[in-house]
């Protein structure tokens, strides 16, 4: 009875409980646009979204993992490994100084890299689902191994001299909008449909809500988990390819602590670390909040030391406000 009352009454509280983080995001944008006149220029907006796309795509995979009460700590290191792999496969010419250097068509290089991401993700998932290792540990292991493998693969050096057809993925535009934004959008739609419109998505929520109950309902928990981490690996690979193309090089030092930014975006976007709750559009908003913060502070020339403090405070404050609104609503 009381629940129906809340549902039927379109109160401010109910609105805030659902869209609190969007309100915070809009508020942040208004403040920044007042403080920096160029903030809302079309060029800067595409600039921000392009910068966000890399973490944004990773964080959508992390959202899946967190909804199942899991986590993915390996994304940053996997970006490093996949970036050097795709770079060595996309060079203009063979480089005899590198342990591995193969010239091949870009489409194949990209396909191999995506496959590598899926495989590494599936390893995470298999360790978690069948090995019964907590995902924190399984992905922590992958984080360490992938970083080491990336350094080993290139002897710790960056890989440059990439084909222009490849760097176009990160630097080109279609209809005046940078390609990374299109890819971010496409991945967002794909992830959103998977999560909210398919049986797989329902299983993901069911596992996060109550794994035992999901099992009793006949959901193959193990198989679903492997798929979740494989999908996260796939998205990580997409990010790695974008990053490599955008910077015209692969580097084993890339992606350092990206996993934390991705987790932060996810959590700011309202995904509960205790599982069962989360959505892709809100995850995008979460990533945008971090991106807008970085961008705004650079635009205003905020001192580097203060930037870090401000970023940390604003992230925690955003989640705090959101959490309180939810309680009240």
């Amino acid at each position: 009875m009381s629940q129906q009352k809340i549902l039927s009454r379109p109160s401010v509280g109910a609105f805030m409980s659902k869209y609190g983080i969007v309100v915070i995001f809009v508020g942040l944008c208004i403040i920044l646009s007042i403080m920096s006149p160029v903030f809302l220029s079309m060029r800067n907006i595409t600039n921000v979204i392009r910068q966000v796309s890399i973490i944004g795509i990773v964080s959508m995979g992390v959202t899946f993992a967190i909804i199942t009460t899991g986590i993915d700590l390996s994304s940053g290191s996997m970006i490093a490994l996949i970036s050097v792999v795709v770079a060595t496969l996309s060079q203009n010419a063979m480089n005899p100084d590198q342990p591995v250097s193969i010239v091949m068509p870009i489409a194949i290089a990209v396909a191999i890299s995506l496959l590598l991401g899926i495989i590494l993700g599936a390893v995470n998932g298999t360790l978690t689902a069948f090995g019964k290792i907590p995902p924190f540990i399984a992905t922590l292991g992958m984080m360490t191994v992938a970083r080491g493998a990336a350094a080993l693969y290139t002897r710790g050096r960056p890989v440059g001299d990439l084909k222009e057809t490849f760097t176009f993925i990160g630097t080109g535009s279609i209809f005046g909008i940078p390609l990374p934004i299109w890819i971010y959008l496409a991945m967002g739609i794909l992830a959103h449909i998977l999560l909210s419109k398919t049986k797989f998505g329902r299983h993901v929520f069911a596992i996060g809500g109550n794994e035992q109950a999901a099992r009793i309902c006949g959901i193959n928990v193990e198989k679903t988990l492997v798929k979740v981490y494989a999908f996260a690996g796939f998205l990580t690979a997409v990010s790695a390819i974008l990053l490599t193309a955008r910077t015209s090089a692969g580097n084993p030092t890339y992606g350092l602590s990206y996993e934390l930014d991705a987790i932060a975006s996810t959590v700011i976007g309202g995904t509960s670390l205790s599982g069962g709750v989360g959505s892709i559009p809100f995850c995008v908003i979460g990533a945008l909040i971090i991106g807008v913060l970085n961008n705004g502070m650079d635009l205003m020339g905020v001192n580097a030391y203060w930037q870090q403090i401000a970023k940390g405070v604003i992230i925690v404050a955003a989640v705090l406000i959101d959490a309180r609104k939810q309680k009240r609503g």
């Binding site: 160029v38 600039n47 635009l299």
Partner: peptide, 8 residues
């Protein structure tokens, strides 16, 4: 990129 956007 952000600095260039900032008009500084």
């Amino acid at each position: 990129e952000n600095w260039i956007q900032s008009g500084a």
